[in-house]
Design a protein around this nucleic acid. Structure first.
Lengths: 235, 235
DNA sequence: GAACGGATACTTGCATACAAGTGCACGTCC
DNA sequence: GGACGTGCACTTGTATGCAAGTATCCGTTC
C-alpha cells in the first residue's frame, strides 16, 4: 500500500471478491458442523487430516481454526492437539444470562415501535409448524433462528443479535442435543406464537414474561443431558 | 494425535506453555494499540511492514490479523489492504445497547446478593481519583475498566463481561477520543461513587438509573467528536 | 493540454518445508 | 511381572516462496 493516503483508499466500497477466501469457506464449514454437532464436543481435529479432507493447505485451515478458537468453538493446546470445545454448563449459564437480557430488552424496544410488523415473524411460525410436521430438525432450527433474529431486527438493534452469536453457540449445541430427546417442539412453537401475539398487541409485560421462560428452558436441559451424554460436557 | 482417545487426552489441564505463542503476543500488542488509538482508525497495516517492525514472520502476524478482523478491530480487503477499522456511529449505538442492558442486569443481580462486597470497587475509586489528580489517562482507563468488570464479577456473571469485550472496543475508542477534550473525568468518578453507594445499600432503582445515564454518555460524545475528528469515522 | 493504456510496485492469499515440543509405546532392566 | 527409560510418531508453530489481483504512476497518443 502506498504511503500516500488518497481519499479513494478510505472509501469503504462494497467489494465482491471474485473468488471467496478459502479461509472463510473453511471457517463456515467447521462452524456449522460444530453447531450441528456433526463435529461433536471433544472430537480431535488434526490440522493435517482436516487439510486433506477439505482439500486445502494448512495455512488457511489454521487461520480458520484461530478464528474458531477466538469464538470458543475449539480449544487448541500448543504442541498437543486441537479439539472441539466441550460444553461447559457454566458457560451455558453465562451465555443464557446474556441472551435473556439482550432479547428481553430487544423485545421491549420492538413493542415500543408503532411501525412494528409481525408478518415476517408469523411466516417463520408457519415454517416451524411445517418443519415440525415433517420432523425436520434442521429446518426447525433454521426457522427458530430466523424467529429470534427478527425480534432483534424489529427492535432496531440487529447488532445486538450479531454480538450475541459467539456466546449463543454454546446454547445452540445444548438445544440441538436436547431436541431429539424431548418432544418439546410443539411447546416451543406455542411459546413463539404467544410472544408474537404479545408483540403485535403491544403487551410488553406478557411478552417479556414468556420470553424469559422461553430462554430459560436451556437451563433445564443441562443437568439431565449431562447425565445422558457425559462425554460432551466439561467437568 | 493417536486414534485412541485415552481419558488423559480429554483432561482440560491448565497448561502453561513455556514460550507464549508469537501469534498471541502480536494480537495483544495490536489490540491494545488499537484500543489506545496509538493505531488510529483508518491507519494502513501492511503485513510485511508490521512483520518487520515486530520481528516476526507473516504467518503468525496473519493469524493475529484474522482474529482482529473477527472482532471487528481491522478490516481487510483481499488483494488491496488491511486497515484499522473506522469508528461507525451505528456500531457504537448497537454496542451501547448491549453494554447498557447487560450491565444494568448485572448490577441488579449484584444488588440482590446478600454477600456482596464493595471494598474492591471502592479501591478502584481511589485509583481513579489518583489517576485523575496525576492526569494519568491510561491509569484512569485501567481503573475504570476494573470498576465495571467488578460489577459483573459481583453479579456472578463474569462471562457476560467477557462476551461484551468485542463490542465494547468500539465504545472504548470513542471514550478515549473524548477524554482529552472534555473535563468530565470528575463527573465520571462522581457517578461511579453514586453507583457503588447504591450497590452497597441495595438501592437497585437508584443504581440502575445512574448506570443507564453513565453508559449513555458515549452516545452524546459521538456527533461532536465526528465533527472534530471526521477522519476516524465511517460515513 | 487531456485522455487513454500499459508496466510496475504493492497488496493479500495460499502452499510447502522446516522446527520445536509432547505423549505414547515398546524394549529393557530390576 | 512390574517399573523405568528411550525412541518414535504425531502434534502444532513458524518461516519462506510463489501466485493472483489491484491501484498507481508514467509514457504515449489524440
Amino acid at each position: 500500500m502506498p504511503a500516500t493516503n488518497s481519499p479513494a483508499d478510505l472509501t469503504p466500497v462494497e467489494r465482491t471478491p471474485i473468488r471467496a477466501r478459502t479461509s472463510d469457506r473453511v471457517y463456515d464449514q467447521l462452524a456449522t458442523a460444530i453447531r450441528d454437532l456433526r463435529l461433536p464436543p471433544g472430537a480431535a481435529l488434526s490440522e493435517t487430516e482436516l487439510a486433506m479432507r477439505l482439500h486445502v493447505s494448512r495455512t488457511p485451515l489454521r487461520e480458520a481454526l484461530a478464528r474458531l478458537a477466538e469464538n470458543g468453538l475449539v480449544t487448541v493446546v500448543p504442541q498437543v492437539g486441537t479439539r472441539v470445545a466441550l460444553i461447559s454448563l457454566d458457560d451455558v449459564v453465562q451465555a443464557q444470562f446474556v441472551r435473556e437480557h439482550l432479547e428481553v430488552a430487544a423485545f421491549s424496544f420492538a413493542c415500543g415501535r408503532p411501525e412494528r410488523d409481525v408478518s415476517a415473524l408469523r411466516e417463520t411460525l408457519v415454517e416451524q409448524e411445517l418443519a415440525h410436521a415433517k420432523h425436520d430438525v434442521d429446518g426447525f432450527f433454521a426457522a427458530d433462528e430466523a424467529f429470534h433474529e427478527l425480534i432483534f431486527a424489529t427492535s432496531g438493534y440487529p447488532g445486538a443479535w450479531r454480538a450475541m452469536q459467539s456466546v449463543k453457540v454454546q446454547l445452540d449445541r445444548l438445544r440441538r442435543l436436547s431436541l431429539p430427546e424431548a418432544d418439546t417442539v410443539a411447546e416451543l412453537i406455542t411459546e413463539h406464537t404467544t410472544i408474537v401475539d404479545a408483540l403485535e398487541s403491544g403487551d410488553t409485560s406478557t411478552g417479556v414474561d414468556w420470553l424469559r421462560r422461553h430462554t430459560r428452558r436451556v437451563l433445564e436441559y443441562g443437568p439431565e443431558l449431562r447425565g445422558s451424554h457425559p462425554e460432551v460436557f466439561a467437568p
